[in-house]
Amino acid sequence: MFEARMAQASTLKKVLEAVKDMVSEGNFDCSEEGICLQAMDVAHVSLVNVLLRAQGFEMFRCDRNLALGIQLANLSKVLNCAGKDDAVTVKAEDEGADTAEFMFESSKGDRITTFELTLMDIDSEHLGVPEDTTYTAVIKMPSTEFRRIISDLSTIGDTVTIEVSKDGASFQVSGDIGKGNLCIQSNTAADKPSERVEITMEEPTKQTYAMRYLSFFTKAAPLSDTVTISLSPDVPLVVEFNIGEEVGYVKYYLAPKITE
């Protein structure tokens, strides 16, 4: 038996918004630790890794590990029926269940909506993401600022070169209409920690990425005030959004473009 209750259905809704344009389906792996989703885009260039820790739920029970194979567009339809302040409870029988139940409860407890979502068998190829990678450059900034940079620059071109040097971090883009270069610098004096920009550099780093995927990653901005972007030569970029203090995270990995 699997049963988990989250006080804010909106968190789950935001998680889904953060992944559904990039991947169409995935296995939600449930264990005592929590709920984990790892999925790649169709081109196998980027990967999203979501973790919702058990302690982030009001109630969490998972007797046996199970994978809920879900078509994300369908889950999105169900979650769109949740009210802004609704709580959500997810239930499933053990492995082999054909459906999962989603129940939304209004904060006053006077409105309860229940859906049975059809599950599917998904052969998901799990990649082993090394956890001990050290990155030569890390940029922490407000997630709204990251979203704005990617949104602005993606109108100019479809590839972006991120360069971190002693002068700051620059985002260089070129396209048919011309070129753009946006440079940001550390600003650790901002009043609120969430408004600070912190650039840490072990060594100057310059890598090129497909803009399209970075645009997908900005869909997670509503989940977190800040985003951390970590890069190193010739390894995938990591873009990380933490959910709450301890609730979990959405991490995206993007393979770099390499000059031939």
């Binding site: 090394p130 497909a210 995938p236 770099p256 390499i258 000059t259």
Partner: peptide, 14 residues
């Protein structure tokens, strides 16, 4: 020009 690499080049199957 630059070439898009695949994630499998960096991340192996566990």
């Amino acid at each position: 020009g630059s070439k898009q690499t695949l994630l499998s080049r960096f991340f192996g199957a566990p």
